[in-house]
């Protein structure tokens, strides 16, 4: 039984059709990568799946799912009076779970980061804290919008390792938006190419033909594809 079934999903914002009759489904434990050019509606798709924006069509989640969501752009005022520990107190997670999830995203000593103010973290730190925050609630479905935006190389490595561990140890169902085709080939069971309507859907190796890639990204597609082969 699929954990997520999307039927005829259409999203219209400001009289513009962003997503047009999209259909796909996902089995528990699978990882779906969503790719497409800027403005293709990747984030809009996530928001529709989460029920954050109005849509027509059907989005059906399996029973007893708990969703974790890491948005693409998350920023807080630098002088926001809120510590990282207080930010985690919004979640019903035990101190152990919080420490564990901070370890997961590459913070060696979570106690130090918990003391800091959320607004003083660097972009990469904030991104990792946010990932840890969404994991602290022990979700069984994770939606990542560009998980490595603003994260430096070593942290990027640990986030990819984390994705891998979440797949193998926790059997999490994941949906990720990524610009990085390497990530798609390495971690995704399925790929959804998005350019208003779904241009392709299936396992990356069969779905991502040079033809779909150039349809999707235009001229630059050859570069993307080339990277993969290296």
């Amino acid at each position: 039984m699929p954990i997520l079934t999307v039927t005829d999903l259409t999203v219209e914002l400001n009289h513009q059709i962003i997503l047009d009759h999209l259909n796909f489904s996902l089995e528990p434990g699978q990882t779906l990568a969503v790719i497409g050019p800027n403005g293709a509606g990747k984030t809009v798709l996530f928001k529709a799946l989460l029920g954050l924006i109005p849509y027509s069509g059907q989005v059906t989640w399996g029973q007893d799912i708990k969703i974790g969501y890491v948005p693409q752009r998350f920023s807080v005022e630098t002088d926001l009076p809120l510590t990282v520990a207080e930010f985690f107190s919004f979640k019903s997670a035990t101190p152990d779970q919080i420490t564990h999830s901070l370890n997961h995203v590459g913070f060696a000593s979570p106690a130090d980061i918990l003391r800091l103010r959320l607004g003083t973290l660097s972009g990469g730190q904030l991104q990792r804290v946010l990932i840890a925050w969404s994991l602290a609630g022990i979700p069984n479905v994770l939606l990542f919008d560009e998980p490595t935006t603003g994260v430096d190389i070593s942290a990027e490595e640990s986030i990819y390792n984390l994705l891998h561990r979440l797949q193998t140890d926790h059997h999490l169902t994941m949906l990720l938006i990524s610009h990085d085709l390497q990530v798609v080939y390495r971690y995704a069971d399925h790929v959804l190419c998005l350019n208003k309507e779904g241009l392709c859907f299936g396992p990356p190796k069969t779905a991502l033909t040079p033809k779909t890639l150039s349809e999707l990204f235009g001229e630059s597609a050859s570069i993307y594809h080339h990277q993969h082969q290296v």
């Binding site: 954050l52 998350f74 919004f90």
Partner: peptide, 17 residues
């Protein structure tokens, strides 16, 4: 207060929580 503050920081995170 906690729910209010999370709503203030990010409506998306609050809704998904």
């Amino acid at each position: 207060s906690r729910r209010l503050l999370l709503t203030t920081i990010s409506e998306d995170l609050a809704t998904t929580s």
